[in-house]
């Protein structure tokens, strides 16, 4: 039952922010502060959710830490996300055989 509530709530907080402006608001947001805040949220939240959780994501902490370091370097050089996904799985797997 809790699951149903979670699905309903996450649906509402995913859908309402998207649909409300389309049906109601016809003016752009003026506040530079609000625009700035919302601009920074995605990167901040992804960083927060990724570290340090990624170290514990595979059951082999050392392999996961080495993999995340390599992923950070690859992302620094703008390797596309699709490639990163595949590379990270392969690295985490291979490294887990050795460390």
């Amino acid at each position: 039952m809790t699951l149903v509530y979670i699905l309903i709530i996450t649906f509402l907080v995913s859908y309402i922010p998207r649909v409300l402006p389309l049906v109601l608001i016809r003016k752009p947001i003026k506040s530079r502060f609000i625009k700035s805040f919302i601009y920074y949220v995605p990167s901040a939240v992804l960083a927060t959710m990724t570290f340090p959780a990624i170290f514990y994501s595979t059951g082999n902490q050392m392999a996961a830490m080495i993999t995340s370091a390599i992923v950070v370097v690859l992302s620094f050089f703008k390797v596309p996300a699709e490639a990163i996904i595949v590379i990270s799985i392969v690295l985490a797997f291979v490294l887990s055989l050795f460390v």
Binding site: P42, T50, T58, L74, S75, A92, S96
Partner: peptide
């Protein structure tokens, strides 16, 4: 187990 890292790796890429 190794697949568990994929989503986090994608977030880093973003």
């Amino acid at each position: 187990n190794a697949c568990g890292i994929a989503l986090y790796a994608m977030f880093i890429a973003i």
